[in-house]
Amino acid sequence: MSVVATSHHGPALIAAAARTARAAPAGAGVEFRLLGPVAVHDGAGGRDITPPGSKQRALLASFVTQAGVLLGVDRLAAELWDGAPPANAANALQAHVARLRRLLPEAGGDGHEWIRTLPTGYLLDLGKARTDVQRFARRSREGRAALAANPARAAELLCSAVELWRGPALQGCRTGPICEAEAERLDEMRLTSLEALHEANLRCERHGESIGELERLTADHPLRERFYDLLMVALYRSGRQTEALGVYERARRRLVGALGIEPGPALRGRLDAILAHSPALSAAPAPALLEELDRLRHRVTELGRVQHELSRRIDAVTAPES
C-alpha cells in the first residue's frame, strides 16, 4: 500500500504540489548558453542539453540571439542552409523546430511554450529563463563601472565575467548571418572586458601577474593596440624597460606589415612616457586604499588622544600629595 493511500494528508499534499508547480515562473532555473558550445542548462533536472545536430544548434542559437523577436521562415532557412535552402525549406525547418522542442526542458507555468509558431515564422519566449550572455554583460558592465573607484572589486567582477566563457562564442554555429553577427559582437565584448580586467589588475599593482597573460593576448590579437599598451606598462613597472620598448617595436612591425599603418597616438604616447620615465607610469594608490589609509590615520590620531588622556589620569592618581 502506498504512503499516499495510508495518509489522510496525501490528497492535500498532492494538490498543494500541483498548485506550486502551476505557480512556478515559466522557464525558472533554465539558462540558455552561447558563450562556447550552444547548450541549455536545466537547473531543475541538473543536466546540460546539447542539440545533437549542427542545424538544430544553429537554430537554437538563432532563437536565443533573437529571443522575443519573430524570425521569418526565409530568414531561418537562410541561416540553417547558408543562403541556399532546399526547395522544401519550410517543411524541413518545421521538422527541425519540432525536434528542438522535444529536446528543451519543461518550461513550467500555465501553458508556456518555449518556441511559439506564428503565421509567418517562429519566436522564442524566454519567460523567466536567463542566458549566460546576460550574466556576462551584467558583470562586465558593473566591473567597468567600478574600475576608477574600486579597481579590486572591478577585477573581481570582470574576472567572473570572463570565466563564464567555455570556448568561442556560438562555437560551431557561426556560418549564418544571425549567428555570425552575434558571435562577432560577443567576441568584441570579451576583448573589451579583458582590457578592463588587466587595467584593473595594473591599478591594483598586479603588474607581475599580468605579464604572461598580456603576452598571450598580444600574440592572439596582434592588431589590438590596447593589449600592447597594457603590456608595456606592466613590464615597465616590473623594472623591464628595455622589454617594454621592444613591445612597442613588435606592435609597430605587426601593424605596418598587416595594415600599412603606424601605431596610434595612445601607444606612441606610452612610448614617449617610458622613454621620459614619466611619473604617471607609477602605480597610483587605489581610491579604496587611500580611503583605508585615511581611516587608519584618523584611528591612530584617536588612539593617541586616548593614550594622552589615560596618561594624564594615571599621573593624577599616582602623583604624591603635597
Rank of each mutant, 00 (worst) to 15 (best):
G29L: 14
I49W: 06
A15W: 09
P25I: 08
G72K: 04
S54P: 07
A67W: 03
A16L: 14
D42V: 15
G36V: 06
D74T: 13
A78H: 15
T50I: 15
A12E: 06
Q66E: 11
V30H: 10
R33T: 06
E31T: 15
A58K: 10
A44C: 02
Q56C: 10
L76W: 07
R47T: 15
V30S: 03
I14R: 01
L71W: 02
L60H: 00
L70I: 06
S7G: 02
A18D: 07
T65G: 15
G43P: 00
F32H: 10
S54M: 12
P52K: 09
P51I: 14
R47W: 07
D74G: 14
V4I: 12
A44F: 08
A61N: 08
P11W: 05
H8Q: 02
R33G: 14
L71V: 08
H8K: 01
A28P: 10
T6R: 02
A24T: 14
D42R: 09
A5D: 00
R47C: 11
F32S: 09
R75M: 15
P25Q: 08
V38R: 03
A17Q: 00
A24R: 15
D74F: 11
A61H: 10
V73K: 12
T50M: 11
A77R: 05
P25F: 15
H9N: 00
I49L: 13
A78I: 08
S7F: 01
F32M: 14
G27N: 06
T20Y: 05
D42S: 15
R57K: 14
P37V: 11
A67M: 06
D74Y: 05
L76E: 06
K55V: 07
A21K: 12
S7E: 00
P37M: 04
G53V: 02
